[in-house]
């Protein structure tokens, strides 16, 4: 059974958006379900900070044993920080996807766009 925290927002492509303590800033990563599907993560390619991505634009890739998947930006915004800990230990995505396994911090362009994302119940329906 996958962990789907109720206070996060999700995409159909299995990324999540977690609010930070700063207004308009969110953590982005992949869900517990997604990491379970991929298996042991061995490499993550993340963008430079300062780059803006539109909704559903590819912002990086994730490689698990032999499978590469694109990472899709859930909502338009600017990358203000990346999780450099994943360089040394990409398995954090497996062990703690919603915590230490976050990938980028995003300053969203328009918080009104959050309404288009899935809440936990709808994401659970999506993966079931």
């Amino acid at each position: 059974m996958s962990d789907i925290p109720s206070d996060l927002l999700y995409t159909e492509e299995h990324e999540y958006l977690r609010p930070s303590s700063e207004e308009g800033i969110f953590f982005v990563g992949i869900t517990d379900y997604a990491q379970g599907e991929l298996g042991d993560v061995v490499y993550i390619e993340l963008p430079d900070t300062g780059i803006s991505f539109s909704k559903m634009e590819v912002f990086g890739t994730i490689e698990a044993v032999k499978a590469v998947s694109d990472l899709y930006n859930p909502i338009s915004g600017e990358v203000i920080e990346i999780n450099i800990a994943l360089d040394d230990d990409p398995s954090l995505v497996n062990s703690d996807p919603y915590g230490e396994g976050w990938m980028i911090k995003l300053r969203v362009d328009d918080e009104g766009d959050l309404d288009a994302l899935l809440d936990a119940d709808r994401y659970e329906d999506h993966i079931s």
């Binding site: 044993v65 032999k66 499978a67 590469v68 998947s69 694109d70």
Partner: peptide
């Protein structure tokens, strides 16, 4: 070999890799 791969004895015969796109 990684788990799930095709081997003869202990040697790989087939090497495979994946991409998920959309």
């Amino acid at each position: 070999p990684a788990p799930g791969e095709i081997i003869v004895g202990e040697k790989k015969l087939v090497g495979s890799a994946q991409l998920r796109v959309g």
